[in-house]
Design a protein around this nucleic acid. Structure first.
Lengths: 205, 205
DNA sequence: TAAATGTAGATTGTTAACAATATTCATTTA
DNA sequence: TAAATGAATATTGTTAACAATCTACATTTA
């Protein structure tokens, strides 16, 4: 069974809104009105509602009955110390699921993301750096082909998206963000699973 | 702000369908047609679609575009090996946040839950056993008073709710589910944080 | 003045009709 | 016979109208 070539409107809108929020183009706390979004995307409120529910499950927006959705506040700093072991557990688990059936297509998808990240690093475009960082790791987890794994990862990362941006701002040279992703791909290309796991543990901190 | 007294149709339908599926009244692999459910619950397809999406996110039903939903085969045990370290990380972190300001009220809330669990164990009422097991640990995490922590924990448990139930079914004597919760509370009553952490690591498996 | 009440408007919740896609099954074709 | 074709039907995807609820703000009341 092919992996669904045509996607529904709701799904497409989820991705666009998620990217807008992760990139900071829609601010934390901002209210998301169904009619407004429906006009922006030129669809009816049905697919918009569907998208907002999805984002709500991912923890990216908060919803109250009869009061709509707003972009949720990113978690407090202290939670970071919790997120690191959780991400390590999940992303290491992902390696085990995907490592022995990687294709050239997988590598080129990661490399396309890293190319865009590199450009963004050179331009100090922190919004895009974060977006690509999250996209890189999302693909990593997606590649494990386990809906449970992806769902859990999404809900964790959604809550700390601000930390992605803030941690990038702490770098002296943004290009280091890009460079720190290279060993991961290189370890996978070598087919060395244990090295990849080691790089990952090192990378998530 | 009060915790929402009136719930939408979608939410109510989620609960009824979830119960029906867990209780086996709707079998694994069975197809869930929107019109059929709409008639059964006397609502339109809107809330039904919403409920099916929610159940899909929880991993209880599978959906394919244009082909509707069916009750998913219960996931492979292997995800259990992921959930255990995640829960250990989160619930241990919770202890650190709550352990030095516990009150008698906290203990009596846990004990009320355990009482109901005990009764359910004796009656082999597995639905209630699971409900109380989840309630016990939810209170544990809630008590840490960190909305982010609770949100992350909830999204994991929602995703693997079914595993709670299935793990209970494996017990020879259901009462052991109850008994295994007692050392946790007893360690907390002693005020021994490290013992509580040890009991927890032992308990989540 | 400050709380309570009551509108008008904005916004979400629900419904039912219409459009697009998939499934079924009889028919054709090699 | 077995695969390919093509309606008819079943089912999901999307839309737009209507209903219910909330919000804001002016007005009343203590």
């Amino acid at each position: 069974m092919e992996p669904q070539l045509v996607r529904g409107l709701g799904e497409q809108i989820v991705e666009r809104l998620r990217e807008d929020i992760f990139a900071g183009r829609i601010a934390e706390g901002e209210r998301l009105r169904e009619m407004e979004l429906a006009e922006r995307f030129s669809v009816s409120r049905g697919p918009i509602r569907e998208a907002l529910r999805q984002l709500s499950w991912e923890g990216i927006v908060d919803t109250d009955r009869n009061r709509g959705a707003q972009v949720s506040q990113s978690a407090s700093d202290e939670i970071q110390e919790l997120i690191i072991p959780l991400r390590r557990t999940i992303e290491t688990y992902a390696i085990k699921l995907f490592y022995d059936n990687l294709t050239e297509e997988d590598f080129s998808r990661w490399e396309r993301i890293l190319d865009r990240m590199k450009t963004a690093c050179l331009e100090k475009d922190f919004a895009t750096i974060s977006e690509m960082d999250i996209a890189f790791h999302r693909l990593w987890v997606e590649r494990a082909n386990s809906p449970d794994l992806l769902a859990i990862w999404s809900s964790i990362v959604a809550r700390v998206r601000r930390h992605f941006r803030e941690s990038h701002l702490e770098y002296e040279k943004p290009i280091h963000v890009y460079e720190e992703h290279l060993p991961l791909i290189s370890a996978l290309r070598k087919g060395d699973r244990d090295l990849a796991i080691e790089c990952l543990e090192n990378h998530i901190r």
